[in-house]
Amino acid sequence: MRLNVTVNGEPRQAEDVWPGESLLYVLRERLGLPGSKNACEQGECGSCTVYLDGTPVCACLVAAGQAEGREVRTVEGLAEGEALDRVQQSFVDAGAVQCGFCTPGLVVAAHDLLARVPEPTDPEIREALAGNLCRCTGYEKILDAVRLAARR
C-alpha cells in the first residue's frame, strides 16, 4: 500500500508498504528517520516514542496504516536547525546520555511532560517517564535533565 503521512511538518509518501509494518519501521526503514529507536518493538520500553497528532505514542505499536493522513513528530523534528530544544540540551548538559539508545524516546516523553506540566515535581517526572526504560544511567541524571529543562 501507499502511505501518506506528515512527518516533522513535511508531507511524505512511502510506497509498497506491507500492511503489517509498524509506523516505527516505516519511519526508520522507509523514510530515513532512524532516530526513533527499536529497543523492544513490543510497547515495553518507550524508545520509539513519537508524537502522533500531538499525543506521544509508541511508534512500534502503531500500524503503518493507522498513521495515514496524520501528523507525526519525531525526535529529529524537535531541534530548530542547529539549536537544540531545551530538553535535548539539558540531557546533554546533565550527563543523562550514556549509550543514548533510550534518549530519543525519553526526550520526546519529557518534551511532552513539560508542555503539559511546566514545573513538574519529582514524583510527577517519575510517573511521566515510567514507560521509558534506560539501562545505563540509573535515571538519576535523567531526572536532573528534566529538572534543568523545566528551569530553562
Binding site: P34, S36, K37, V75, L84, F91, V92, D93, V97
Partner: peptide, 23 residues
C-alpha cells in the same frame, strides 16, 4: 573536568548511527 560528550548532541537529535540504523 566533566566536558560534554562529543556524541551527545547527535544522540539527543536522533542522528547518531547505531548498528540497527545502518542502511
Amino acid at each position: 573536568e566533566s566536558p560534554l560528550r562529543p556524541d551527545g548532541a547527535l544522540k539527543v537529535r536522533g542522528e547518531f548511527a547505531y548498528s540497527s540504523d545502518l542502511w
